[in-house]
Amino acid sequence: MSVHLPLILVLGLIAFAFIKFHRVRWWGVIALVLFGFLLAHTFLGPAVEDGTKSGTQIVNGH
């Protein structure tokens, strides 16, 4: 039996748990998200995308 969850839900739960248990401030989370969006528009964006795709393929076993 497999369960299909949207990625945004999984990431949201991980972020919530991280903030709750590691006492990270909300402004820090917002700054990191903003940094991620800005990083995606630099020359490192394709490398991050390729790394993410290959990481999910490894996890999914493809």
Rank of each mutant, 00 (worst) to 15 (best):
E49N: 14
K20S: 04
L32A: 06
N60H: 15
S2R: 14
L5D: 08
L32I: 04
G55I: 07
G12D: 11
P46T: 13
P6W: 05
L9T: 09
I8S: 13
F16E: 04
L39E: 04
T52Q: 14
L13S: 05
L13F: 03
V33L: 08
G55L: 15
H22S: 03
A15W: 00
P6M: 10
H41I: 12
K20A: 08
L11T: 02
A31Q: 02
P46H: 12
A17Y: 05
V29G: 01
Q57K: 15
L34T: 15
F18I: 04
A15M: 01
V33H: 00
K20D: 10
M1S: 15
G36S: 05
K20E: 11
V3Y: 13
I19T: 02
V48L: 14
A31H: 00
R25K: 12
I8A: 15
V33E: 00
V29A: 06
P46I: 11
G12R: 04
L44R: 07
H41F: 13
E49W: 14
T56V: 14
I14D: 01
L32S: 06
T42K: 07
V48M: 10
R23S: 00
G51F: 09
V29Y: 07
R25N: 05
G45L: 05
G61P: 04
G45Y: 02
H4S: 11
F21D: 01
V48F: 15
G55F: 08
D50Q: 12
G45C: 03
H4P: 04
L39G: 02
V48Y: 12
G51V: 10
L39C: 02
V24N: 00
A15R: 10
L34N: 09
G12W: 06
F16N: 03
F16Y: 09
S54K: 14
L39V: 07
H62I: 03
V59M: 11
K53A: 05
G36A: 03
R25I: 01
V24T: 02
R25D: 09
W27I: 12
S2N: 10
F35A: 10
F37A: 08
R23K: 15
I30P: 01
N60W: 08
G36D: 00
P46Q: 11
L39S: 06
F18L: 06
N60M: 12
V48D: 13
H22Y: 06
V59H: 12
L39I: 05
F21S: 02
L39M: 05
R23W: 07
L7S: 12
L38V: 07
G12L: 03
N60V: 14
I30S: 09
W27R: 13
V29R: 00
I14P: 05
G36M: 02
H4M: 07
I30N: 04
L32N: 03
G51N: 09
S2T: 15
L5N: 10
H4G: 08
L44K: 09
H62D: 13
T52M: 13
V48E: 11
L38N: 03
H62Y: 12
